[in-house]
């Protein structure tokens, strides 16, 4: 399990990095945490000519709250995100999701940007950022563009990022985020890839009517998906067992999961329903709590 040889670069500025990316084109790839790329290289599932190590770009490792927007640098380590009091305060969905990612040791290395661009269909960060309606800032030597995360995922491991581009920042508008939140996941063991995961944000008014929300499900398709139809059924209603069941059912019906060694297609469909329901219920209870009413989740 030794990789094929490649050229290794360690740029010290963003400018240098972007120029390298332009020069390397298709044959170049960035390495940050390396938690996905190193195994792929070692197992020779990929042959890259150029590996560009961006761990020196400290200026991309940040968490900032500016004018109602939570800004996370691409190189921000998952562990920093996990422990950040700012994030816990303004985007607690992320704080709840990150501990599901691998283990402390891998989170010390893995980056937020790396996870988003790697776009594993079961990954927690892509799913959370989708639920949070985040925007990805993508830079190349020639231009900077903004892509809503909702439009970012194309298919398995494939995103709207060209080989010459780099994700430098993620922005989440947090002022208008619904107050109720929940991230739930089902996996075989602690730290494993999720079989199914769901993220829910909900706002309710004083008498428990759902006024706004976002619901996203992961592990059920090639990319994480927004369960809009299920959410629509909830809007304007108080949450009852029957409504919850209906929403869960609709959410599952809109997925198209594959079966694999750990979960058959039928089982995944079932889990999609179960965990969508669990996410909605938890987010609902938290929303009521925030308003001072309702029971503890």
């Amino acid at each position: 399990m030794k990789p094929a040889s490649f050229n290794y670069y360690r740029p010290s500025t963003l400018e240098e990095t972007l120029q390298l990316l332009l020069d390397c084109g298709d044959e170049g790839k960035l390495i940050a945490g390396g938690q996905s790329l190193i195994p792929i290289l070692n197992m020779r599932l990929s042959s890259l000519e150029h590996v560009i190590d961006i761990n020196g770009l400290r200026e991309l490792d940040f968490i900032r709250l500016e004018e109602g927007i939570l800004k996370i640098g691409g190189l921000c380590r998952q562990r920093s995100l996990e422990k950040s009091p700012t994030v816990k305060e303004v985007a607690p969905l992320l704080s709840e999701a990150v501990p599901f990612i691998g283990h402390v040791q891998t989170r010390n290395r893995g980056t937020v940007g790396g996870s988003l661009v790697h776009a594993d269909p079961t990954a927690e960060i892509p799913l959370s950022l989708l639920a949070l309606d985040a925007t990805a800032i993508i830079q190349s030597a020639e231009e900077t563009r903004e892509v809503p995360v909702q439009d970012f995922f194309i298919t398995y491991l494939t995103t709207d990022i060209a080989p010459t581009e780099m994700l430098t920042e993620i922005q989440i508008p947090v002022d208008t985020l619904p107050k109720g939140y929940a991230f739930v996941e089902f996996s075989r063991r602690h730290g494993d890839f999720a079989l199914v995961a769901a993220a829910c944000l909900l706002d309710t008014d004083e008498d428990g009517t759902i006024t706004a929300g976002r619901l996203a499900i992961g592990g059920v398709d090639a990319v994480p998906m927004i369960a809009q139809e299920a959410m629509d059924v909830l809007l304007g209603e108080k949450l009852t067992d029957a409504l919850l069941e209906e929403a869960g059912q609709i959410a599952a019906e809109n997925t198209d999961p594959e079966g694999d060694l750990h979960a058959s297609r039928e089982y995944r469909l079932h889990l999609a329903k179960v965990f969508t329901k669990r996410a909605i219920r938890k987010a609902y209870e938290r929303s009521l709590q925030k308003l001072g009413g309702g029971t503890q989740p």
């Binding site: 197992m43 075989r188 063991r189 602690h190 730290g191 494993d192 890839f193 060694l261 750990h262």
Partner: peptide, 26 residues
């Protein structure tokens, strides 16, 4: 958790610790 899994055509499916599941501390 543990199984060295093969599909019915004899293809080996649990070739890494992602899919061959050993119990860990938790």
């Amino acid at each position: 958790y543990e199984e060295l899994a093969y599909d019915r055509n004899g293809q080996f499916l649990s070739g890494s610790f992602m899919d061959y599941l050993c119990p860990t501390a938790p």
